[in-house]
Write a protein that binds this DNA or RNA. Structure first.
Length: 304
DNA sequence: TAACCGTGGTT
DNA sequence: TAACCAAGGTT
């Protein structure tokens, strides 16, 4: 084993400060309740993929009362699931969550697996979500690296204003080194660092005055220098296929029955609408009922 | 690897 | 107001 690669960083004090801060300031999110099932934790993690937690909370409540177990969701039609997903964004996540529920029923007897490689094998579950479910649903000592963890590490340990454009091996290694030795401590540490990143060490305007480790933050100690690394490419929105796909799926969510092509995305370029429609059908988000009738999948019997 | 995939709040 | 950003995953 190598020695500490964290010169100047007292990991013990970091643990103490951030765990104490979390105990005093954590949000009472419903999936953090000790009575929440592993399924509830898994659902919360998938919903929170690129969607702010504040918007996830009400959707999660509705979802869990409707489909309290994987078996409940596995029985549902894809269209109903996409409709219930509402406007959380990236509706393919809803389909994959349903597919994950089906896989859990088929491969794991209806119980969310605890093993990270088994979690990772479920549709829509990547490295982050597998580690998060292992930690937060089962209390395991997994290496959880999300955008919050990356930013906190970049500042507190590396002295940089923000993390690199994409996840690096070094960031995962660092997160592993920072992990407390005891399982339960590690699980709480993971959520505590995420919470610090979400509430205090934020991307835009960090609240350094409220930070429990500001006295030992490498970035603050360096004078909070501006980021000078590679810039990540911003995502276009207006006029993109993503925007038109969103318009089409929302039209189908709001409709009580099949919708004609012209009513899916009025005023939009017809070629673009056709292209998006083909993509949505390919993705399983739209079902063509006839040459010019479309609906969310599995809601009505195909005809004509 | 980098592009793609929704949505709405914040700055 | 336009750009940025959010508990990422897939191809």
């Amino acid at each position: 084993m190598s020695g500490s690669r964290l010169p100047g960083t007292d990991v013990r004090l970091l643990h103490q400060s951030i765990l104490a801060w979390y105990a005093a300031h954590s949000r009472p999110l419903p999936w953090r309740d000790p009575s929440c099932s592993p399924w509830g934790v898994l659902v919360s993690e998938v919903m929170a993929q690129q969607t702010p937690v504040s918007r996830v909370v009400p959707a999660w409540q509705d979802w869990m009362s409707r489909w309290p177990t994987p078996a409940d969701l596995a029985r549902e039609s894809p269209g109903e699931v996409v409709r219930a997903w509402g406007r959380l964004g990236y509706p393919r996540r809803a389909l994959r969550l349903r597919d994950a529920a089906i896989a859990i029923v088929e491969r794991h007897d209806g119980e969310v697996p605890r093993d990270q490689s088994e979690l990772r094998a479920l549709p829509g579950i990547g490295d982050y979500t597998a580690a998060a479910v292992a930690a937060f649903a089962f209390g395991d000592r997994s290496v959880v690296v999300d955008t919050n963890v990356r930013r906190v590490q970049a500042r507190v340990v590396s002295g940089l204003a923000q993390a690199a454009p994409s996840l690096t091996r070094a960031e995962v290694d660092l997160a592993r080194e920072l992990l407390p030795v005891v399982d339960h401590d590690a699980a709480v540490w993971n959520v505590a660092v995420m919470e610090l990143g979400a509430l205090v060490c934020t991307a835009r305007a960090p609240r350094c005055g409220d930070c429990p480790v500001r006295a030992r933050c490498a970035w603050v100690l360096a004078g909070s220098p501006a980021y000078d690394g590679p810039v990540r490419r911003g995502q276009k929105w207006h006029g993109t296929d993503r925007q038109v796909r969103g318009i089409i799926v929302q039209a189908l969510r709001e409709a009580t029955g099949p919708v004609g092509r012209a009513a899916l995305a009025p005023g939009r370029d017809e070629q673009q609408v056709d292209r998006c429609l083909a993509g949505l059908i390919e993705d399983g988000l739209v079902e063509p009922l006839s040459a010019d009738r479309f609906a969310l999948p599995g809601l009505v019997e195909a005809s004509g």
